[in-house]
């Protein structure tokens, strides 16, 4: 069951990521990124992170991607054009990313037996477990992030404001 769900949603993740890479129109890339993020939420559930799965759907697939789609439509972004810069990027980008993937996959697969198996339901972090750590041990960092959010709100309002 775990393996079937993993292959199904992992495959959906990879398909979405490759589609993001291949599409030329930003709105298509944004929609495939939503597919990636929603399937990642299912993978979080399989790994026993129920709060993060909900937060992934609400924050990433909901808030952040809606913001992206808003901006794409607001700026009326069309298909990207090919330029001389993109030729160099193709020459460096694909082999570089393939080499990175090769190295990482080699390291992880060579340590496969040492890393062991992930068993469904062997480790479940409930929201109360998470909040106990977050609001007791890490209260100060949590409050600091709220200041970060406040600064981000003010900064985005100032940056996106029309100049007089």
């Amino acid at each position: 069951m775990h393996l079937v769900l993993f292959i199904l949603f992992g495959g959906l993740c990879v398909a979405g990521a490759v589609n993001l890479l291949l599409q030329r129109h930003p709105i298509n890339s944004a929609l495939s990124l939503i597919v990636v993020m929603t399937s990642l939420a299912v993978l979080y559930l399989l790994l026993g992170a129920e709060f993060l799965a909900a937060a992934q759907v609400i924050v990433y697939s909901g808030a952040i991607m809606v913001l992206f789609v808003f901006v794409i439509m607001l700026l009326n972004a069309g298909e990207e054009e090919r330029t001389t810069g993109s030729k160099a990027a193709y020459l460096v980008g694909f082999p570089g990313a393939a080499a990175l993937l090769g190295v990482l996959a080699f390291v992880f697969l060579s340590q496969k037996s040492a890393l062991g198996n992930a068993r469904l339901g062997s480790f479940l972090v409930t929201t109360s477990d998470l909040s106990r750590v977050l609001f007791r041990d890490l209260l100060l960092p949590f409050e600091v992030t709220s200041i970060l959010i406040l600064v981000a709100i003010l900064g985005s309002v100032v940056l996106a404001r029309k100049e007089q």
């Binding site: 990521a17 890479l21 090919r82 330029t83 992930a118």
Partner: peptide, 29 residues
């Protein structure tokens, strides 16, 4: 059937990261 090697999850995240790196370098928008 209940077990998936942890390495598979890590390889999946490596694939997603590499796609991100490639898109970061190649995309012009």
């Amino acid at each position: 059937m209940m077990d998936v090697p942890l390495a598979y999850y890590l390889v999946l995240s490596a694939i997603l990261f590499s796609c991100g790196v490639a898109a970061f370098l190649i995309k012009r928008n």
